[in-house]
Amino acid sequence: MSAAALRGAVDLSSLRNRPAGPAAEAPRPDGQVTPLVVDVTDATFGQILELSRTVPVVVDLWAEWCGPCKQLSPVLEKVVTELAGRIVLAKVDVDANPQLAQGFRAQSIPMVVALVAGQPVPLFTGAVPEEEVRQVFAQLLELAAQHGVTGTVPVGDADGEPESPAEKPLPPLHQAAFDAIEAGDYAAAIAAYEKALAENPRDEDARAGLGQVRLLHRTQGLDLNEARAAAAAAPTDVPAQFAVADLDIAGGHVGDAFDRLLDLFSAVEPDERSAVRERLVELFGLVGDADPRVIAARKRLATLLF
């Protein structure tokens, strides 16, 4: 990340001058005790923009139905807390705040963007390991310093004690999967989530986590250019098309991935269609049933099936 990254990559102009909501909903750079993790709405976003002139603000765009979001959020909160006021985390529920989701062009979540001196800085999309979050935040602090944003916010009460209650620990198998993901051992994470689902088939967090880590496992070590060349050379080769679709999903190109697999479904022999349909259904689960791109792709798949 360089100083050149600080640019208007997303359009936040419509939200800059909105009236602020209650002061308790957003942090204040006024010397008072400030929470490091805050929920932000369309109405309170103006205060967050102002705060970003004092301290970098990391914006976490998430939704309740998003499994990868639930994986990533505790990592973001942990790292922000350790930085002790040098960064504030602003959480945006995209379902409840459509104007912010549109302003940040949130085509895939979780999506993480920083604000430095009122300007957006894209960081990453998707759940990433804790070590990568630390590296990105370190680069963000360097970039902020280049633009004169070097302040901190006061945290804790008068005795220096934190105000936030301790986070609820993850279930043991979820924690095992999370630790394995941080270590880059995706096979172990898959095994942990599969065991969690075997014990409780209704564990939707485990199901979402399993889909995400399977995607990480499949795309590990893949080269996008090589994968695209292989897919172009063999339009009906199912593994080659799967590889590009996985990379597109991981990179936030959701519509491209769905279109590729739907075209493949139409082109392959009948005995290969079941695998293509299963991969589509798996990716639908990753993106979320309420996503309009999933709804459109499901309709097209139904047309192809019947």
Rank of each mutant, 00 (worst) to 15 (best):
A144S: 07
A144V: 05
A144G: 09
A144C: 10
A144I: 01
A145E: 06
A145Q: 12
A145I: 14
Q146N: 08
Q146D: 08
H147A: 02
H147M: 05
H147V: 06
H147P: 14
H147N: 09
G148W: 00
G148R: 03
V149K: 07
T150L: 00
T150A: 15
T150Y: 00
G151M: 13
G151D: 05
G151T: 06
T152E: 01
T152G: 01
V153S: 12
V153I: 11
V153N: 08
V153P: 10
P154D: 01
V155G: 07
V155H: 15
V155R: 06
V155E: 03
V155P: 07
G156D: 04
D157K: 06
A158K: 01
A158D: 12
D159M: 13
D159F: 12
G160T: 05
E161N: 05
E161L: 10
E161Q: 02
E161G: 01
E161D: 12
E161F: 10
P162H: 08
P162W: 13
P162L: 03
E163V: 04
E163Q: 07
E163N: 10
E163P: 00
E163F: 02
S164C: 01
S164T: 13
S164V: 09
S164H: 05
S164Y: 01
P165W: 02
P165C: 15
A166D: 04
A166K: 13
A166R: 09
A166L: 07
E167W: 05
E167K: 14
E167Y: 13
E167F: 08
K168G: 04
K168W: 01
K168H: 10
K168E: 12
K168D: 12
P169T: 08
P169R: 15
P169H: 13
P169K: 12
P169Y: 03
P169W: 07
L170C: 03
L170P: 00
P171Q: 11
P172L: 10
P172K: 06
P172T: 04
L173C: 00
L173F: 03
L173R: 15
H174P: 01
H174L: 11
H174V: 12
H174A: 12
H174K: 08
Q175E: 03
Q175V: 11
Q175P: 09
A176Q: 03
A176E: 11
A177R: 08
F178P: 02
F178S: 14
D179K: 06
D179S: 08
D179R: 12
D179A: 12
A180G: 10
A180C: 15
A180K: 05
